[in-house]
Design a protein around this nucleic acid. Sequence first.
RNA 1: GACCCCAUCGUCUAGUGGUUAGGACACCGCCCUCUCAAGGCGGGAACGGGGGUUCAAGUCCCCCUGGGGUCGCCA
Length: 464
Amino acid sequence: MIVTRFAPSPTGYLHIGGLRTALYSYLWAKRNNGKFLLRIEDTDLARNSKEAAEAIKEAFQWVGLDFEGEIVYQSERFDLYKRYVQELLDAGKAYRCYMSKEELDALREEQTARKERPHYDGRYRDFTGTPPKGVEPVIRIKAPTSGVISFVDGVKGEVSFNASDMLDDFIIARSDGTPTYNFVVVIDDALMGVNEVIRGDDHLSNTPKQIILYEALGFDVPKFYHVPMILNPEGKKLSKRDGAMDVMAYQKEGYLPETLLNFLIRLGWSHGDQEIFSMEEMIAFFDPSHINKSASAYNQEKLLWLNSHYIKEASYERLIEALRFFDVDLAPHPKKELLIDAVRDRAKTLVEFATMIRQIVDAPKTYDEKAIEKFLDTKAVEILSEYKNTLKNAPTLEKASEFETLTKNFLEERGLKLKDLAQAIRIAMVGNSVSPSIFEVLEIIGFVHVIERIEALIIYKKGV
RNA sequence: GACCCCAUCGUCUAGUGGUUAGGACACCGCCCUCUCAAGGCGGGAACGGGGGUUCAAGUCCCCCUGGGGUCGCCA
């Protein structure tokens, strides 16, 4: 059985790069009827892991990912790590090092000055004498000093490192007794049964260290997949400066979760030429061996295109639900389906969607001056006024087609074209020169309110 | 600096020795049209450079260049 995991450190929110590796891990587990686990890497006690876990849960819930069992917190497993440190100590595979921080810094400085790679020199590796007083030792692993460490990465292929220029006896437990990252990752992955690790390729250089630990501890080495970074549109490393990093920001900006997932899966992974993937397809097709080897740049236009795609596809219920977040409740609206269909092709985000809805549903409070100047000269106001009278004398109109017939007859009698009236009606209805098809808008607004809105514009125009 | 990874249109990518180098986003043009969109049709646009290997190289090898990552008692 394939077991994958997502193991973020608590940063307070889930960022999109993290969501992508989480998605890949999730998909790969699902595809293989395996398990996808969640672990919070909070060995650094300074940061609040509960809050971070809540943020991750919220984001997972929003996009529809779930994980198996309970969240594992590393901060709750210190006793466990201690046991394994002791085990390595007893086996002579790790040792106490009494070098002080100052000494280490000095050593590193010298090495750098000599243009050498800064590294620990192993001075306590075989130390048997009396330890210096007043120094709380760190625990270091006895790493191989020669040979080659290689592994087959599921994305990059075979990767190998020379132990001599890669490794030193790195620290597995700090002087305060707490374990370090490389050590706890290995322990937890092994104990949790994680056998396929999908993670960012910034971890590629850590991998040989972890392999050393797997072997020292007698655990099986998992299969690794190192996925390349996401770059900003300029091709540089993605940072907070580039805008939305927090997954939940995408909700606020009006993206559907299916958009984000589809966007992310396609950023760095492909299945032939296919662009659109449902969750079922993602699970059916995702294979980490098709992950691209090179980094990919974030592409806002494509995100927007995907979002408009999913808005076009979404069911009425889905949209009504998603729109609640933006304080738009369409559920009681008598023409909600017509309204949604009138707007959906025009909105790239739900923010725009909500704005357009409000513009139709709420009578205009102001009018766009430029539109008035351009389309409402005296002649146009006259026509609009006559049109209003015609409406008033007509039986109550209901359907868009009824408005259309009446309007066309009205125009024909006067030898006018739709062009001569459409913009005036539009300004009356929504306050500016842009809206969905006017006849649909008229139906949505309803006969009585249509007349009111036209009258309001005429009065406004006279007042000016 | 050392080590490791990477390199196809502006961007996301297909390509696994023989292709007119394909698709998508974006862009441009045309059509549709009551505005704006949407939609339809069409267009421009790429194998970083240099050496090899081979009958044949975007595809394999080497070098260069350019990006990125890692070198913590952070994760």
